[in-house]
Structure formats: C-alpha cells, structure tokens
C-alpha cells in the first residue's frame, strides 16, 4: 500500500509540474488563445473572476492587450510577467513564486509534513507499546471472519 501511495504521489507531482508548460502559437491570436492567457489573470475590478470570464470594460481592454502581445510573438509567461509588473502582482491568479509569496506554497507543505511526521511518530509509539501482550490480541482467524460473523449476528437478532 505504501508503495502505491508513493507512486501515486510521484505521478501527481509530475502532473502538477507538467501543467506549467504551455505552447505558444503566435501569428493572429484567436479568442481561444487570448482566453488561455486571460484565464490566468484575475481582474481587480471584479473580485474572484478571471479576466477571460469577466464582463467589465477593463477586462475587455486587457484581453485586447493580450491579443496585441500574442501577435507580437510574446510567450504566455512573458505576457503574465508584463501584466504583473504593469498592474501589480495581485493581478495574477497565484502570487509569483518569490520572496514572501513563497509562503503561500511552503506553509501548507510544511504543515502537511509536520502532520505526517506526528502521525508517523504516534503510530510508531502506539504500535510499539501494544506489541507487549497487555491487551489480548485477536488471533488472525478471529479477525478474518469478524465481518461475516457480524452480518450473521445481525440476522440472528433480526429473527427474534
């Protein structure tokens, strides 16, 4: 089971990393190209909605600007950087990975690691302790059919 978890974690990690790479096809940008970039920006005049879906005038202008920059051959990443430096980091959907903003990623990872560590430590301690025969350990066969026995027990009580 542990191996499965590890493999799965590794795969998910890869998937997450892979998500950042985007292809850039320049020339005349289609609305879909523009939306692809606009989706990664959030518009300060309409809280919580990305620029592709935001119906305000500001966002319409921004989409036009994205179109211009795409036509000029800029990559998605360069466009995002342009918007962040021009209007502030808070127009990005996720804070840029530098300085204090790294905290947004690091703190949850540290918290989860700390929780996992605690979990592991506690489980280790408990299982070690209970290895001593202070509680009557169930024999494997007993455990094995516990489930089926319960179904039958329920049946028994039901008849009465």
């Amino acid at each position: 089971m542990r191996v499965r978890v590890l493999v799965f974690l590794a795969l998910l990690l890869l998937a997450t990393l892979g998500g950042g790479i985007a292809d850039t096809s320049a020339q005349t940008p289609s609305p879909d190209d523009i939306n692809r970039v606009a989706k990664q920006l959030s518009c300060p005049t309409c809280a919580g909605i990305n620029v592709a879906d935001c119906p305000t005038e500001t966002c319409a202008q921004w989409r036009a600007k994205i179109g211009e920059l795409l036509a000029a051959g800029k990559t998605d990443q360069e466009i995002l950087e342009y918007f962040a430096s021009r209007y502030g980091d808070h127009v990005l959907q996720v804070p840029p990975p530098r300085g204090f903003f790294l905290g947004v990623w690091i703190v949850p990872v540290l918290a989860i690691l700390a929780a996992l560590g605690t979990f592991g430590y506690l489980v280790h301690r408990w299982t070690q302790r209970s290895a001593r025969p202070e509680t009557s350990a169930a024999s494997p066969e007993e455990v094995e059919d516990e489930y089926l026995r319960r179904v039958q027990r329920e049946l028994d009580t039901w008849w009465k």
Partner: peptide
Amino acid sequence: YLDTDTAGLAYLKRFDITYPNGPDIGSR
C-alpha cells in the same frame, strides 16, 4: 489606474488633458 496605454491615451486626447498623466505602474 488599471488601463492599457492605448485606452488611457485615447481618453486623454478625447478630453484634451494637458496636465501630466502617467500609468500607475504596479498599482502602487
């Protein structure tokens, strides 16, 4: 604030505004 340069310049021209105007870089 929050304008593209093209839109901002068009606005300044429309109202014939002559005092110094500039973009708010980084919304600072």
